[in-house]
Each structure stands twice: as C-alpha cells, then as structure tokens.
Write a protein that binds this DNA or RNA. Structure first.
Lengths: 247, 247
DNA sequence: TCTTGACCTTGATCTGGATCAAGCGAGCCC
DNA sequence: GGGCTCGCTTGATCCAGATCAAGGTCAAGA
C-alpha cells in the first residue's frame, strides 16, 4: 500500500494523428486513414449542453481535454449524474441513433468526434476496434457498479472521500509531489455537480468537505483547489477495503 | 401507452442445441460445434454462492433458468446488489481471471457454462459473437445507469414500484391475463435481497410493500405472489416519465 | 403433534441528511 | 466604485428511512 501503483490514462497518443488513444491505439495504415476521414473536433464552454436525452446524435466521440457529465433528470427536477467522462473516455453508443442521457460539459471541453455511420461500418470491419470498445464498456460497467455501492450504502462522508479518490485515480493531470507523496488538483465539478454525482444535496457536500478539512484529511486552497497530504488517510474514509481491492 | 409493447426475452432458442440464445443466436455449423465442445451445465440451490469476489473463475456462463445476483459487501457488512441475472443473461467477463463481485443464486438456478479460455479464443475469431457481447454489455450499462438514478434520487416507495416494474418487464415467465391486462408473478427475491437491490433495509421494503397493497396498487397473495391489477397505476408510482421513455 | 428456524410484518424511537434560510466573497458589468 | 450574480458556506429545523424490538406465519423435520 505504501508504494501505491496508479495507472494514469494517457489522453494523447504520440504515434496517433487522431490523438485518440482509446480507439485507435492499434490502428494502422488504411484504418487510420479511414478514421482521419470521418473525424472532426468540437469545443464547448463549461456549463454548455452537448446533447439532450432523446436528441438525435450523429456522432460518437472521445474526450480530448476537459470533463463531461452524463445526467438523468426526473420530471420534478431531481437529477442524478450517471457518467463522468475524462480525457480519453468514449462518448456515444454505436447502433443507437438517439442519446439516452443529457450530456453537458462541466469544464471547457474538446471532443474528437467521428461521424456515427461510417464509424459503425469501421467497427463491423475492424475487429480490434470493437474488441477495444468491448473492453472499455466492461470497464465502465465495473465503474458503474462501484458507483452503485456508493449511492446505495455509503454515508455522505464516505461518498465525498470516495469521490475525491476516484478523481485522483482517474485524472491524468494530477501532480504527485515529492514530500510525503501529497497530491494536489483542481476539482473539475461545482458543489452542485458533485451532489448530482453522489446522490446528495449541495449543502451536504459543502458541509462534509468542511468536515474533512477540519479533520485534516484534505486542505482546501480556494473553493476548488484540493491538497491531499496523506492519500491513505483519505482512503481510510472511503469505507472501501483497505488493501486496494483487486489482486 | 394503453397497448404497452413489451419485449420478453427468450431464454431458449429452439434452433440452437446450446439453448443459449444470447450468445449463439447466429452461430452456425463449425462455430456451434465449437461452443458445444466447451459447454456444460451447472445447477445451484437457492441461497448458494456461485463465486466469491476475488475467486478464480474459469468459465463464463448464461443463465438457463432461475435468478442470480451480483453483490458487493463492505467490511462492516453493508451490502449492495449490483447486478441481477435472469434467464438468458450473461455471467462472467472474458479476459478477466478473477471475479469482481460475489455471485449467488437467489432461486434454484441452472447455468450453461463455457470454459473461459476456449470461449475467449472463439471471441477472437468470431466477430458476431463479440458484437453480440458488446451489445449486451451496452444494454447492461444502460440498465446500471437507470439503477443509479433509482439508488441516488428515488424515494423508498418509488424504488419498490420501479423494482416491480423492472421485474415485470424482464421476466419472461410472467403471465399476462385477459381481463384488464392484470399481471401476476412470483417475486424471485426475499425482502432482504430486495433491500440489497434498492439500497434500503428489509423493514422499509416490507412497509412500502404493505403501503402499495393498502393503496390497491398491488395485491399480495402469500408473501411472494404479486398481482398488478393496473400496470399504468404502478408505473405512476415509479417517478419515471409517464410516456414510456425511449422513442 | 410439537419444535425449530427462516421469512416477514408492524410498532416505537432515533438520526443523517434534506430543507429552508441567511450571509459571504470574488469576479464582472455598468 | 457600486451593485449583481454565481458559487459556496453555515445555521436551524424537519422528516424519511434506519434502527431496535416484538411478534406472526408457515414449512420441514423430530
């Protein structure tokens, strides 16, 4: 546990002109050209909606930088985030014309889009792309199941600690400092978006952040900048098995 | 809404000797022989554990009949169900040696198992099997996200109503009666397992079932047999959009 | 027939997080 | 500079669902 091993995802792939490691890591020659031909970039400002649930969606995409959220909203306004997309994550579902969830940019965001129909054609012909996509989908399913445990059974404090540790583990930009392995990063979400992620209200999020701060588990520099002096101490607050889980 | 269309999954595939529609629906000749060669059946009694999280798992499987549950348990005993497998559902993850979650039979259960390594080999060579598996995994991910909304934002009453409607929609054995379209079925889960599914305690499950009964939304014949006189009335209790959702 | 134990129901009470409400600080526009 | 608005914090109060506790039902087995 002392020498924690973290797998930082790489948003860019230096050999790949598409800069989209997730899909094209093993593409070569003709396949790359095909992907190049159907790709284009799109930029969104923080807070902008990319698609609404039910909208026609004529592309699939990969996050280049920034953060996007999938959310569901009930008729009376109750909202639940159901997906958080960080750089290199995949957005959209092949063989589905309409979006199932609202997608919004929670920070400034760049997407690398592929037109859906030709992308699907490529999928049919290129086995390793669909294998990769299956792998990614299975990983997302595992993440969703962890998230379900969080939503169903964890306390507010455990939810906050778990959320912070998830961000730390997934965000490639987080710097690992020398002294004592303290971690520092900016939250990519408002308190309200965190509440939607965790199934809480924004007031409870704020209170629990203050409480973790008071207890020295985190430091807050400004509203968004977090310093974690001792990652193990944070993990201890998550309620998860202490031994790092999967072996 | 009056003439509700339900897609009942078919557990058996009459043309398919493997009786496993989900995977082999479009397999022919040699592929079928390959699947036949690596398949075997296993039976479990209600309550039995199939694998523990972390156990080595040398097979993948399809549910032939009965119901299985994937659950996660925290150190202090809090439990959350994260998957519910009905007939024709798929169990196990290709390219993963060890189970991530506990798997238990919640009713008497028969699995059609395939040895994992040769199944993976088949996946690599047979495009339509891996395409089918991707499709199934994406469906499961969508289901998991609905489930997250339920866990994070719904009230106890809405959770129970949603659970019942999910069972009705997914269970192929449910009889549709002539008069008024009333539905009747046996719950495949104990109150405790329902609580684990919904992120509640078993007492709250029991109380809300009684409440729905008192209000005439459901009838309870014995502990487990449910009659739903008016499916729309039940749907109205779920908190979901009334118009059936996806279009 | 009686006992046992698994499941389930119901009542009384407690509490974590929701809700309602006020105020703060920092950018931004006039 | 003054006034806004947005994001956030903090306090007071409330309540849905948890917890604690008792008892009911039914099937299996002695």
């Amino acid at each position: 546990m002392a020498q924690r091993q973290m797998a930082f995802p790489q948003a860019d792939c230096s050999e790949c002109p598409i800069r989209y490691r997730a899909v094209c890591a093993h593409c070569e020659g003709d396949e790359l050209n095909q992907l190049e031909a159907i790709k284009y970039y799109r930029n969104y400002a923080a807070g902008q909606t990319i698609v609404w649930a039910g909208d026609r969606m004529d592309f699939v995409a990969s996050v280049v930088h920034g953060v996007a959220a999938l959310t569901q909203t009930m008729e009376d306004g109750r909202r639940q985030m159901v997906g958080l997309l960080l750089p290199s994550d995949f957005l959209g579902r092949p063989n589905r014309e309409h979006a199932t969830f609202d997608v919004t940019a929670t920070t400034d965001l760049q997407l690398c889009c592929f037109r859906r129909q030709p992308f699907q054609d490529l999928l049919s012909n290129t086995h390793h792309v669909s294998k990769r996509l299956l792998e990614m989908t299975l990983d997302e399913l595992d993440a969703a199941r962890e998230w379900m445990l969080l939503l169903g059974r964890k306390t507010a404090r455990e939810k906050i600690a778990s959320f912070l540790s998830i961000i730390v583990r997934r965000d490639a930009t987080i710097q690992q400092f020398a002294k004592g392995g303290a971690l520092a990063f900016d939250l990519p979400l408002t308190r309200e978006a965190m509440a939607d992620y965790l199934g809480l209200t924004l007031e409870t999020v704020s209170r629990q952040m203050s409480s973790l701060k008071k207890d020295g588990v985190i430091r807050l520099e400004g509203k968004r900048h977090i310093v974690i002096p001792d990652f193990d101490a944070l993990m201890h607050e998550t309620g998860d098995d202490s031994d790092g889980g999967v072996y």
